[in-house]
Amino acid sequence: MKMSLIVAAASLLGLTPAVAPMDGAHADELRVLAGGSLRSILTELAPQFEKASGHKLAIHFDTTPNLIKAATTGEPFDVGIVPIDVFYDQAAKTHFTPPVEFARVGYGVAVKAGAPKPDISTPQAFKKTLLEAKSITFLPASAAGSYILRLFERLGIEDEMRAKTIAQDQPTGIIPAVVNGEAELAVFVNNVLTAPGVDIVGPFPAKYQQELVFPAALAVDTKQKEAAKAFIDFIMSPAATVVVKAKGMTPGRS
């Protein structure tokens, strides 16, 4: 009882997301499928959840195509926190319960820290900056990358951008490519660009801006339903949203 009161009080004060203590119950290991862009957020929240609940998390971060494959043909999982594009795949969608919106994020451009910031304030300036850049980097094989590729087509510059793109296979490669001088610009979702070593130039112009949504849902066949629900409640809690905002994302809504 005392522990429950302490946890509840801490939650009200915004000190930590409230998770019911186990009181000696069996600890579950939860298998979580997660979008690679969520790595910095979930690696910060995961230890907090494990400490508060006693459950362990095994998080598999990956790109949208691989997450669809994992949901439909891979090993059993308990929770998915994935780009909404995963739910557009009808086969993958059947493996999830109805989701809640965990977070959303817009797109932006970043340069190496201290480098001059190009003008992307208008659609014309944005296009000019992309065409004049010697090299850009992003992750084409992802939900975010798919939107960026469609935008290049919309701008009529897909051939020029293809020639100067340094493609990454995981979001973790984007920032190092800019920091080490391999790429002049990083073009991706803002939470990935919110990182040491780079400066965010700004968001895409409003005409081209779009938000990528990350829903969270239980696996329909999870054997750890209560623990999985507790994890989703945890990442949706007021204290967890502080981390979400600090990482450059907008907390979602149920």
Rank of each mutant, 00 (worst) to 15 (best):
K2I: 13
L5V: 13
I6Y: 12
V7Y: 12
A8H: 10
A9G: 14
A20K: 14
H26I: 12
A27Q: 10
D28Q: 15
E29F: 01
V32E: 02
L33D: 02
L38Y: 08
R39T: 14
S40L: 11
S40W: 10
I41P: 05
T43R: 12
A46I: 07
A46H: 01
Q48N: 05
F49D: 01
K51T: 14
S53Q: 04
L57C: 10
L57A: 10
A58Q: 09
A58V: 06
A58G: 01
H60R: 13
D62H: 01
P65G: 00
P65H: 07
L67I: 07
L67G: 02
A71Q: 01
A71T: 00
T72K: 07
T73G: 09
E75Y: 08
P76K: 04
F77L: 03
D78E: 01
D78R: 07
V79Q: 05
G80H: 02
I81Q: 04
I81S: 02
V82T: 02
V86D: 11
D89C: 04
A92K: 05
A92Q: 07
E101D: 13
E101M: 14
G108V: 11
V109L: 12
V111F: 10
G114S: 07
A115F: 08
P116R: 03
P116K: 06
P118R: 05
D119T: 08
I120S: 03
I120N: 08
I120E: 06
I120G: 08
S121Y: 06
T122E: 08
K128P: 09
E132N: 15
A133D: 13
A133H: 12
A133G: 14
K134Q: 14
T137G: 11
T137H: 10
L139Q: 11
L139F: 02
P140K: 07
A141H: 11
A143L: 04
G145W: 00
S146R: 10
I148D: 03
R150N: 15
R150M: 10
F152Q: 03
L155P: 00
G156Y: 01
E158Q: 15
D159I: 11
D159W: 05
D159Q: 15
A163L: 12
A163Q: 14
A163P: 07
K164R: 15
Q170S: 15
Q170D: 13
Q170P: 01
T172H: 12
I174R: 06
I174P: 06
E184W: 02
E184G: 05
A186T: 02
N190G: 02
N190W: 01
L193T: 08
T194L: 10
G197W: 09
G197D: 09
D199P: 01
V201C: 02
A206Q: 11
A206T: 10
Q210A: 14
E211C: 03
E211T: 12
L212C: 00
L212M: 08
V213P: 04
F214Y: 15
A216L: 07
L218T: 07
A219N: 04
V220N: 02
D221L: 08
E226V: 11
A228I: 07
A230V: 00
A230M: 10
F231S: 05
I232P: 05
D233Q: 14
F234R: 05
S237V: 04
P238M: 03
A239R: 08
T241D: 13
V242G: 12
V243D: 06
V244S: 06
K245S: 12
P251G: 01
P251H: 01
G252D: 06
G252E: 05
R253S: 15
S254A: 15
